[in-house]
Design a protein around this nucleic acid. Structure first.
Lengths: 220, 220
DNA sequence: TTGACATCATACCGGGGCGTATGCAACCAC
DNA sequence: GTGGTTGCATACGCCCCGGTATGATGTCAA
């Protein structure tokens, strides 16, 4: 898993189409509602009312509730890719590269929490209600992109293991645990945990440190 | 935070009433459905049909869908308390005590996954739809018990910090991250991850090791 | 001016789901 | 045997919600 091996990976898929202002506003309202109450418990009327408008506006820009959900989740994923991918392309040693990626991941997540909470809400649960074949392919494309994103973490961790700087327990378990810990803000973050940018970055650095301790810790 | 200080904590609240066989069967079916599709997306008819019976049976034993949900979550919490509390009462040094608690936590969770997935599904999201004041108090009692359970982890970690064997980053962040990592099985465990008891315990031990690396790792 | 298009609001339909009311069989107590 | 209780199944009422159809308003081009 050398430098050249990493470069073989395809660049992140391009963002579909830049959303207009109206779409942006709807996406934010939808992400906030979905993050608060979950997909099934959120009505489209509710999303509209949060912006002070009505359902017609939402259905003018999005064809279904499922499409709206996937759009919000994809937006969150796009933000992560934009911020984290450059760090993954960097030529520093794996432990420093992983730290930079993790830091960017956490900071991005805290900055746009609702979208990332939607993203983690499991598209797999939404797909049960996805009847349209078009919704299916949207959902599958999203899941694939999410897998690609996690792959860049798996790659750098695998590289660190091969160089002996990371501990050598099950790779799969190591990656899953590290990503779960790094996604922690989506579960427990609240406004009390810090408002100023300094507090946020301090918290992110501590979270990254904790996670890397787990990854780099001594074997047995 | 000495031995005596830990003993001040109240014993875990007694389990309300031992559920009958019929209630047990309904609880399992409900937990499975809730874990698969979430609270809002699961209908009571669906829970009943999973057992091959009808809705009347469910409503004979549980007064509302919310009560059913909280009962399933509480059952999972009971199992954790039963298994983990003895380890927390043990007189071993904090790092060994925490390891034993974490191991019991993970093994119990994997053994009864559906209940614990329901437990983590956030009762806070369900409470929005809880209109009955009686449901409110059920939900508040559950949240309080859940907080008490997490407190025993917080206590042992705090003790380890005061003795200098644990790293000294934010206690709150440390506890949240450790618990999230230990709950990992609820998020990513699938049948492929191990079937035999030996594979399960090996996986649990690795997960505990990873988590303790994060907690005990070097400061900064 | 006028027609075409975009951007919404409003009204409505159909279905699903929670909870309840009712019925019905079986099992006691006496 | 008979009245009461338990343990369900069935049927219904009511509300909410997703999606659509229709119409109103503004804008822009010709």
């Amino acid at each position: 898993m050398t430098e050249s091996a990493r470069s073989e990976h395809a660049a992140p898929a391009p963002v579909d189409a830049l959303p207009s202002d109206a779409e942006q506003a709807i996406l934010l309202a939808a992400a906030t509602c979905f993050a608060e109450r979950g997909f099934a418990a959120t009505s489209v009327d509710e999303v509209a009312r949060r912006m002070g408008y009505t359902k017609g506006r939402v259905y003018h820009y999005f064809r279904s509730k499922t499409e709206l959900f996937i759009a919000a989740a994809s937006y969150g994923l796009d933000r992560l890719v934009v911020e984290v991918w450059p760090e993954a392309e960097c030529a520093s040693p794996p432990e420093k590269r992983l730290a930079a990626m993790a830091r960017a991941h956490v900071l991005t997540q805290i900055r746009d929490l609702p979208y990332h909470r939607v993203m983690l809400q499991g598209v797999t649960m939404v797909v049960r209600g996805a009847t349209t074949p078009e919704e299916r392919i949207m959902q599958e494309r999203f899941v694939a992109r999410q897998r690609d994103y996690e792959q860049i973490f798996r790659d750098v961790i695998e590289e660190g293991r091969s160089l002996g700087v990371f501990s050598n327990v099950s790779l799969s378990l190591q990656v899953k645990t590290a990503l779960l810990a790094l996604n922690g803000a989506c579960f427990w973050f609240s406004e009390r945990d810090g408002q100023t940018p300094e507090e946020i970055t301090a918290l992110a650095d501590q979270l990254v440190g904790l996670t890397l301790n787990g990854v780099c810790g001594a074997d047995r």
